[in-house]
Design a binder for these strands. Structure first.
Lengths: 209, 209
DNA sequence: ACGCCACCTGTCCTTGTGGACAATACAGTC
DNA sequence: GACTGTATTGTCCACAAGGACAGGTGGCGT
């Protein structure tokens, strides 16, 4: 379906490198983040990186100085020997296109690489399930569309800003009105939402009870 | 890589059905949720469903009575003519294994079907980005155990109360100390957490931003 | 035309808040 | 014993916040 694309495998583990040899016709092997620059310079994009690279060091791989600069423009499938949801979230946030197990079946890895190479994302079932769960429990934030219920448009704007810590003066300047007017709006907001001050307002707006 | 698997396409749209004919060797066409039962009974699993099925009705497809019962055991790729993050979240939560555009390139659809057929999930870049963003803004909730880091025990107590809206006077009474002392503690808290006032403190404590 | 409502502004006043400067007491550490 | 960190309290002060009271404008529907 997709033309075989040049693959760079990035790992310090010789056994793992051998295992991954079967993934492509002629995968290139590198051991450090430096390899990424050369790979991009050569016009390639596809990379399979072993997160175990960081096991020896103190910092996680994707938090190292070189990472953010190096991943730009590349399609990266990150593999971990001990997949962990948090790690997965972190690497995806850091620009990786996929996250999987280092010793997943070669068929699975090939498919993942295909997907990543085509510009899409590869996320495991467990990780995505967790994402959905997190988002689900977060949905009660729908109260976020609820707190503004009885408020007018202007009151909403003022309340939103006050709830994030802006001073009345700052709000006024931002909206092009007087501080006095801001106070008037806030007074109305306090009444309608049955709170006494901006801190209670902030808690309400941000869904803290 | 994966043996071509029998595909059921579920849509009311004849043009779309024609477009999707090229996805597999001999895709079976059905028009309603009833088709799912027969499909599973025949020992198949892979389904591509057009969410446009629901456009005519009032309820979204995946909220219909038959859905939850029918999707069990099937690998479903849901397609929408107007993909929308919320819709995507909803169908994935409802048991679908993937979400994509109805008129995505056939190559992409084939790849998505391959992925779904292999038991994995297919999620578009935009949707996953949104998921990550949602989760990201939520994760700092773990900072809840973190914000108190450099604070002393007493400062923590005071900060906790101030962050929920208590006045200095109230905090003092609650802890059996003078309002002045509360201010002293809060001053230290503000410095250590690098915030300027109790509202910013509240946002920090409750994991906002 | 009248009333209702959103929006805007003014002055006066009380209170809470945050900061500056200073001091006492008590604990554990070197 | 000197030192450091924590907890405590004091006074004085500048300022933002919130409430009370009193307006002005413009749109919109009956």
């Amino acid at each position: 379906m997709s033309p075989p694309e040049a693959l760079l495998i990035l790992t310090d583990d010789d056994l793992l490198a051998a295992h991954w040899q079967g993934l492509a016709t002629a995968p290139v092997r590198a051991r450090g983040l430096d390899g990424l620059d050369a790979w991009r310079a050569a016009g390639h994009r596809l990379v399979l990186v072993d997160l175990g690279l960081a096991r020896g060091g103190t910092a996680a791989l994707w938090t190292r100085p070189g990472w953010q600069r190096n991943v730009a423009g590349l399609s990266i499938l990150a593999a971990s020997s001990q997949p962990d949801d948090d790690e997965g979230l972190a690497v995806l946030n850091a620009g990786a296109s996929g996250y999987c197990h280092t010793h997943a079946p070669l068929d699975t890895l090939r498919q993942a690489l295909d997907v990543v190479a085509s510009g899409e994302l590869w996320v495991g079932r467990a990780l995505l399930s967790r994402l959905l769960r997190l988002v689900d429990t977060r949905l009660p934030r729908r109260g976020l569309a609820d707190w503004a219920g009885p408020l007018t448009e202007r009151e909403r704007e003022v309340a939103q800003r006050a709830a994030t810590g802006d001073s009345n003066q700052a709000i006024g300047t931002a909206l092009g009105i007087t501080e006095r007017t801001v106070k008037a709006h806030l007074k109305a907001v306090f009444e309608k939402l049955a709170v006494t001050d901006r801190l209670q307002l902030a808690l309400r707006v941000h869904g803290v009870r």
